[in-house]
């Protein structure tokens, strides 16, 4: 049975977890920076994609709190150009999934402002994700 590494806090190997979820081996990354150089969202990011990947390599949980993983537009420019054939966008998606599955954030719909103006489908999606 596959161990749920994420639940066993303190024993998480982030790189293995990412491999399990996405099939991408982050240890392949040699930090050339081509992903960061070509990224259209780079100037909005707190950590560039290769920096996020390096944080996964050294098992730095800070990577899960990087704003970059939510800024990533999944445009796949990095995935297409990576010289080590890493699907960087997919790794970002893996990090987002870990974050969402941990259910750390919840939304109290009663406190959402302008509830009547927001698209209902977005509220349903947000409710599913965060509850």
């Amino acid at each position: 049975m596959a161990k749920n590494l994420w639940r066993e806090k303190g024993m998480v190997n982030l790189a293995e977890k990412i491999y399990e979820m996405t099939g991408e081996n982050v240890y392949l990354c040699y930090l050339c920076g081509k992903c960061g150089a070509g990224c259209p969202m780079a100037d909005k990011m707190d950590y560039l994609p290769y920096q996020v990947i390096h944080m996964i390599q050294i098992n730095d949980m800070e990577s899960l709190n990087a704003k970059s993983i939510w800024i990533c537009a999944t445009c796949f420019t990095c995935s297409v150009r990576c010289p080590r054939n890493l699907d960087v966008a997919r790794i970002m998606d893996g990090l987002r999934t870990i974050k969402v599955r941990a259910q750390e954030q919840t939304i109290d719909l009663r406190e959402v402002e302008d509830l009547d103006k927001l698209p209902p489908i977005a509220l349903v999606a947000a409710g599913r994700k965060y509850t």
Binding site: C32, G33, K34, C35, G36, A37, G38, A42, L48, Y50, R81, P83
Partner: peptide, 18 residues
């Protein structure tokens, strides 16, 4: 850093890298 792309602007080439 590995260069990501090169584009031309006027008579200059713009190198994008990090």
């Amino acid at each position: 850093g590995r260069v990501s792309k090169i584009v031309q602007k006027g008579d200059k080439l713009i190198v994008h890298a990090v």
